[in-house]
């Protein structure tokens, strides 16, 4: 039996069994409580910052006027010598205008051609979050032509731009916003800190496979 035919059989068998036995399932019971697990957050910037920092993320409070200055100051102070930014990033033009002494590397080719640089050369990547979640200190990054997902994954440092006005209180609120959520991009990423693991005797260590450092430029004003 060919592969496809066997699989069509499997599909049929599985669905048939499920349909046959589904009457044994309990009828849908009472109303689900829409407030269970929902935490309201008043001071969204404060909550976001606290949660992000508790997860070893770093938050640079800044403004729409000063964030580029703050970004490059930070890069210089941290002795981070290059920053990769997507060619079609929302802020590509804006950033490339600055003459900063930091080498700006454009992500302008398919991943296969960028792979070597990303893994071996790029010191920091720049991403733009389209929204955030205050309760859990979370950035929401939508993949797209201007947001290649490997930029917030492979380089050891990730700078992420976030407008405080786009902060949702909690995940319930974010996911209920149909206009924001749909249509979903190929990758919708919720990022809540630098990469970590506690797999060795429950001891927390940072910089497992994803970025070791996550630095948020929090635009407030």
């Amino acid at each position: 039996m060919s592969g496809t035919k066997a699989m069509m059989n499997s599909r049929h068998n599985i669905l048939q069994r499920l349909r046959q036995y589904r009457t044994s399932m309990p009828a849908h019971e009472q109303m689900e409580n829409p407030t269970a697990g929902v935490v309201e957050v008043e001071n969204k910037v404060g909550a976001f910052t606290a949660a992000m920092e508790a997860a070893h993320g770093e938050v640079i409070p800044t403004t729409s006027e000063h964030w580029r200055r703050d970004l490059f100051e930070h890069l210089r102070a941290q002795a981070i010598h290059n920053l990769m930014i997507a060619d079609q990033s929302r802020f590509a033009d804006l950033l490339l205008q600055e003459n900063t002494g930091i080498e700006l590397l454009p992500y302008n080719q398919a991943f296969e051609s960028m792979k070597d640089d990303l893994f071996h050369r790029v010191a920091a990547g720049f991403s733009v979050a389209s929204a955030g979640i205050a309760e859990t200190g979370t950035l929401i990054v939508k993949s797209g032509p201007g947001e290649p997902r490997t930029l917030s994954l492979v380089p050891p440092v990730n700078y992420v731009w976030l407008d405080a006005n786009t902060l949702y209180q909690n995940q319930f609120e974010a996911f209920a916003d149909k206009e924001y959520m749909k249509p979903l991009p190929t990758n919708l990423l919720l990022i809540s800190g630098p990469s970590k693991t506690a797999d060795i005797q429950q001891t927390l260590a940072y910089g497992a496979h994803g970025p070791k450092r996550l630095i948020v430029l929090l635009i407030d004003g």
């Binding site: 991943f111 960028m114 859990t136 190929t186 990758n187 990423l189 990022i191 809540s192």
Partner: peptide
Amino acid sequence: AITTYFNMISGPRKPDELDG
């Protein structure tokens, strides 16, 4: 409270995307 990453995958690389 939340894990470092929550990755929601809805498809392979689109024609206008650079990676994935």
